[in-house]
Design a protein around this nucleic acid. Structure first.
Length: 442
DNA sequence: GATTCCCGCCATGGG
DNA sequence: CCCATGGCGGGAATC
């Protein structure tokens, strides 16, 4: 119970601390954490008195940071959920949350039940490219449906997704299966709409992708979660649906923040905060984040939620309600995996990147097109040369090993689900961003 | 009082 | 039926 939980915390702390220490060298500049938020239990003895419950220490963002610190190494084979949960001292449920968004951004791939393969940040560029590509195709491909409200007669109070069967959906699917190079693909059998994928359509992972796409396609680089929710959701919606969606977006935004893919900013004056895309992001880790130039545009004040460098969870609960949650948290398994070297293969394929700042994704550039590092575009003002993206634009899918195949299979599937859902949301996107977004840089 | 968002119940879907 | 997964929303902590 309590005893075990504390020991778990200890282990987590040790592991993460070690990891952090090891990682230190990788950071361009070591910069002590500024720790915007003083530890609530900072006073007192060496350890910690009792440590009052603090939400921040349990945040998904922090958890994500720790997760990354813990696994972002060369010798990380596959990741077991139980193992992760135990190491980080959290319940399994939380790991699912993290893993889902990490996967959406290409940092992980599901290998099997309970098992994920670590791809690392090198996978991000490609994932973003995929995402963006889809988003753009989506935009131009789907029916323009100009400023028409699409009606949807009757309020149909709670159900949002109607399944409007889009004609070109099949075409896309076919194209996909080709790309995927699925050996066991039957040219006729498995072509199904995957009924009742309704569950998946509302998944955190999908939501994450759509959220990211939003940033990738519009040129205004900030959105408030309410806006995002409205955008990603349909039009009018039950208050409750909106609220739930926003809750999820908070979750996602927090982990994306910890990955430095976005940052929270205070919109001008007296307005709810919004999130700004930092595609060029560098390193996960703490808040120092050498997030390059990009001076915050005039009045926006960057007060992103700083994730402490401290190490995760302690077995303290939200309130004074004891209830030792104590999961069995068994950790058995982790036999010798063959997948182990998959990761290293990818790694070597990339030439070990990481420290050089510029890294190629899993696919080595087919045509070694070198894009100038943001050569000379828009002098002055914040240019948004997205390193992740421009970098990946030159990629040509040309996989040569297991892991990559899996990766693509994954993307293919994700697409399918995304496609149907997004089809309906696209029109509202259309009226919001119009054509301008279609041809923005690139 | 409003916002942020953690916690964990419990539906669900795969095996 | 068991168990891995992961929606979902109450309501506590923060702002």
């Amino acid at each position: 119970m309590a005893a075990s939980s504390s020991s778990v915390a200890e282990v987590a702390a040790a592991a993460a601390a070690a990891a952090a220490a090891a990682m230190e060298s990788a950071l361009p500049q070591q910069q002590q954490e500024e720790e915007a938020r003083p530890r609530p239990m900072h006073a007192g003895g060496a350890k910690s008195r009792h440590h009052a419950y603090s939400r921040k220490e349990k945040s998904l963002g922090l958890l994500c940071s720790n997760f990354v610190v813990l696994y972002n190494r060369d010798d990380v084979e596959s990741i077991g959920l139980d193992e992760a949960a135990k190491s980080l001292g959290v319940e399994r449920r939380r790991i699912y949350d993290i893993v889902n968004v990490l996967e959406s951004v290409g940092i992980l791939v599901r290998k099997a039940k309970n098992r994920y393969t670590w791809i690392g940040f090198d996978g991000v560029p490609m994932a973003l490219r995929e995402l963006k590509e889809r988003a753009l195709r989506e935009k131009s491909g789907l029916a323009p449906l100009q400023t028409e409200q699409q009606s949807a007669s009757t309020v149909s109070d709670d159900e949002d997704d109607d399944k409007l069967g889009n004609p070109d959906g099949d075409i896309e699917n076919e194209k996909l299966s080709q790309i995927v190079d699925n050996p066991s693909d039957k040219p006729g059998a498995p072509r199904c709409r995957l009924r009742s994928d309704h569950r998946k359509e509302k998944s955190l992972g999908l939501l994450t992708q759509n959220f990211v796409k939003l940033f990738l396609t519009m040129e205004v680089d900030t959105v408030s979660l309410d806006e995002a929710a409205k955008l990603l959701l349909g039009e009018g919606h039950e208050e409750t649906n909106m609220r739930t969606k926003v809750r999820r977006l908070y979750d996602i935004a927090n982990v994306l923040s910890s990955l430095n893919l976005i940052e929270k900013i205070q919109q001008g004056d007296s307005r709810k905060p919004a999130f700004r895309w930092l595609g060029r992001a560098a390193r996960p880790n703490a808040e120092n984040a050498v997030t390059v130039a990009v001076p915050p545009p005039g009045k926006t004040v960057s007060n992103k939620r700083a994730f402490g460098t401290d190490i995760t969870n302690i077995g303290v609960h939200r309130s004074n309600q004891d209830s030792s949650i104590q999961k069995k948290a068994k950790l058995a398994q982790s036999g010798g995996d063959i997948l182990k070297n998959c990761k290293s293969v990818v790694q070597s394929r990339l030439g070990q990147g990481k420290k050089s700042g510029f890294v190629y994704g899993p696919f080595h550039p087919a045509s070694a097109r070198k894009h100038e590092l943001d050569g000379g575009n828009k002098p002055g003002q914040r240019e948004r040369a997205e390193d992740w993206e421009s970098l990946s634009d030159s990629f040509r899918p040309q996989y040569q090993n297991q892991a990559l195949g899996d990766l693509f299979a994954h993307y293919a599937e994700a697409w399918k689900t995304w496609y149907s859902e997004f089809a309906q949301g696209s029109n509202i996107m259309q009226q919001h961003f119009g054509q301008s977004a279609v041809n923005h840089f690139l």
